[in-house]
Design a protein around this nucleic acid. Structure first.
Lengths: 223, 223
DNA sequence: GTCTATACCAGGATAGAC
DNA sequence: GTCTATCCTGGTATAGAC
């Protein structure tokens, strides 16, 4: 992740433990507030309150609101593709796809704020992470797409455009974080239990595998 | 759509053609700006500029920024489920699901701004349309879910939780509007041609049908 | 109904004490 | 490194002429 450079705090030198802890606290609070309000909607005051410290401290550590936002995004992007590396050419398609979907579902569950910040950023034009999407992400999708094309040529899964497949998988998994409010409203619940979320995860996995022409055991279809 | 009441312009009485035209112009401009910037990020000045008229006119017609935003949302919600009524119990599952997905894909293509405003609203907690989601939408999903459950009981499609299915279908279709920037970045194109979008639409339809255990001709699988 | 000019306030950023 | 007090821009909303 070289496109977005995290702000180096004021001094430009390594700081002591208290500073690092403050910084981490701010980042965490900022992620939550940016997720709830968007970039414009979030105020430094609210982030400061969420981080239990006065406003100027935020400026001391990150300079500007925009720099803080960039730091949050950097933090998010560094993990966004972390679980994505299960696509090895020799691997079993059903196994690889299944664990990819499960990893993405877990990410939505464990870092819903991060998912929403990312969604908000892309939704409004990816002004900050645009270069990252067209360079780094594009390259990765291209690579993994080749693996999938290999599987298709080998008759190991249905013919699915690899890029379209990725967009659909991302959408199907991230929607549980990004649109959680809608999910809760339609289901008539205040929250999803771990058990309920696990059940949903298996629904998504099964749906995605069938969508790729694979049954749960990974057997390719007659087609 | 009774939950959100569109603002009745200043006089409270029907206005003449020029007023109606201005109002429609403002709504259209507002939808676009709200889509690009979010509620907070959008400014009345920018909407006014987009509508080619001075700022106070917006307040004349809609009172406040929030009222204008509500009017835009009402407009969007009225069409959001319009195409959703292909789910008739007697219908063919593959045919019903296919035309539903196609309708949603067309909506994403033709009203991307509307889709983004909606996404942004839900993403940030559905503060304005929350009641609509838990009343009207919930009821509709419940109804259509019964139809799907009937199909499953009749062995006409795979066992898929109907609610989960809807969330996935919405996600898979709306992502092409909401995350268009990401799609373009990863594909390395500035825009999608009609032909390219049609091809993607068929990818999504095929994937969704297989996901439901249906092939393109609507034959249920052995399962 | 349409527009110019302006009141008013929220919020980002900084000065400067400790 | 931490915090109080304050500056100042930008943005909603309105007054009031036409």
């Amino acid at each position: 992740m070289t496109i977005i450079s995290a702000e180096v705090p004021a001094s430009g030198r390594a700081r002591r433990a208290s500073g690092l802890r403050s910084e981490a606290t701010i980042l965490q609070a900022a992620e939550r507030v940016f997720a709830e309000r968007g970039f414009k909607g979030a105020s430094m005051s609210e982030i400061a309150a969420a981080a239990h410290m006065p406003k100027p401290n935020l400026h001391y550590y990150f300079g500007t609101k925009e720099a803080l936002y960039r730091a949050v995004l950097t933090d998010i992007l560094e993990t966004w593709l972390g679980e994505a590396d299960a696509f090895v050419p020799d691997g079993d398609p059903a196994q690889a796809l299944g664990s990819y979907v499960r990893a993405k579902m877990r990410w939505s569950r464990e870092r819903p704020h991060a998912s929403r910040v990312f969604a908000n950023e892309v939704l409004h034009g990816a002004l900050f992470i645009g270069p990252y999407l067209s360079d780094d992400l594009r390259r990765r999708v291209e690579q993994k797409g080749k693996v999938i094309e290999g599987w298709i040529r080998g008759g190991r899964m249905a013919r699915v455009d690899p890029r379209a497949l990725f967009f659909m998988l991302w959408a199907m998994t991230q929607t549980w974080a990004d649109f959680a409010v809608q999910v809760h409203a339609v289901l008539g619940v205040a929250d999803l239990s771990e058990a309920a979320y696990d059940a949903i995860t298996e629904e998504v996995v099964a749906f995605a595998l069938r969508g790729c022409g694979l049954d749960a055991d990974g057997r390719p279809p007659a087609t």
